[in-house]
Design a protein around this nucleic acid. Structure first.
Length: 342
DNA sequence: CTCGATGATTTGTA
DNA sequence: TACAAATCATCGAG
């Protein structure tokens, strides 16, 4: 505690100190020259360090520099004016002292008054500078205002992950980091994305079917290829049942009567599966396809223990409580029409 | 301009 | 603290 005391002469003004601190933090006051970038650098660092957003920042920095310059110019002007005024008054007093006695105390008092006046002006300057910086910040740094959609590629990557982990779309911290890296976005952005995606997917699964198909098929094919390659390598292929019980973590939500006619699932999107991989992603993919074939959310009755963070037994992160104003539920698999796509 | 999509923030919860 | 849900604010197409 008590480290950076009030180096300024003024003691009692918390408001002023607040302003000073902020200006300092913002890099407006402080070292005139390059030092100002400290705040900008800090801000940039806070955002995660990826160098992608430098364009936005350069604009921000430019504006901030402008503010800083104005601030310093004004400040200097005030100081100069203050000095001039002071000497002027002193001269006046000195002149007067020839006609009447003037105590040093009186002089001091005058000077004090002048300084106070000017420092109040300074404070105003600081305040308005602060405001300007705040506005600038909110304009440039508040991502909400300056929202940019992610690149197509980034969205692709995220979607791929999401749909290939549909049974548990909660990437670990490491996974998030990796995704962030791949997508050139920050980890929080990845978290945001998954948060939004989960909620929106759950809210209206129907709307995402097409997309889901696309990615499901894609990953399925990918996995299939991989597996195929593996199989080719060593013909150890004798899976009695494709993915029978092997994957413990994965349970289909076929709660009793939720029959699903598998074969009706778009046969093409998915021939790869016959290779039978117990790869998780593959399983997820399968699950997804089935899911959408049979009915969208695992609306089984009993899962009263819906715990968001750890998925559970029925593989349903998308809980049954969904009111689902979804398009008529009867729409099911049929809607997959027209996708003989590749 | 409207409107849906979408990234970010806020609020409430366990 | 991570998440769900609601909400905000901008983007981008029509």
């Amino acid at each position: 505690m008590s480290i950076r005391g009030a180096q300024e002469e003024d003691p009692p003004d918390p408001q002023l100190m607040r302003l000073d601190n902020m200006l300092l933090a913002e890099g407006v006051s402080g070292p005139e020259k390059g030092g100002g970038s400290a705040a900008a650098a800090a801000a940039a660092a806070a955002s995660g360090g990826s160098s992608d957003n430098s364009i936005e920042h350069s604009d921000y920095r430019a504006k901030l520099t402008q503010i800083r310059q104005i601030y310093h110019t004004e400040l200097e002007k005030y100081e100069q004016a203050c000095n001039e005024f002071t000497t002027h008054v002193m001269n006046l007093l000195r002149e007067q002292s020839r006609t009447r006695p003037i105590s040093p105390k009186e002089i001091e008092r005058m000077v004090g008054i002048i300084h106070r006046k000017f420092s109040s002006i300074q404070m105003q300057l600081k305040q308005s500078t602060c405001e300007a910086v705040m506005i600038l910040r909110s304009r440039f740094l508040d991502a909400r205002r300056k929202r940019r959609n992610f690149s197509k590629q980034a969205t692709e990557i995220l979607n791929e992950y999401f749909y290939s982990h549909l049974s548990n779309p909660y990437p670990s911290e490491e996974a998030k980091e990796e995704l962030a890296k791949k997508c050139s976005i920050t980890v929080s952005q990845v978290s945001n994305w998954f948060g939004n995606k989960r909620i929106r997917y759950k809210k209206n699964i129907g709307k995402f079917q097409e997309e889901a198909n696309l990615y499901a098929a894609k990953t399925a094919v990918t996995a299939a290829h991989a597996v195929a390659a593996a199989v080719q390598n060593n013909q150890t292929n004798s899976p009695t049942t494709p993915n029978s019980g092997s994957s413990g973590s994965f349970n289909l939500p076929n709660s009793g009567d939720m029959f699903m006619n598998m074969q009706s699932l778009n046969g093409d999107s998915y021939q790869g599966s016959q290779v039978g991989a117990n790869v998780q992603s593959q399983v997820d993919t399968l699950r997804h396809v089935i899911n959408q074939t049979g009915g969208y959310n695992d609306g089984l009755g009993g899962n009263s223990l819906y715990s968001p963070h750890n998925l559970n037994a029925n593989g349903g992160w998308q809980d049954a409580t969904t009111p689902s104003s979804v398009t008529s539920p009867t729409e099911g698999p049929g809607s997959v029409h027209s996708d003989t796509s590749n």
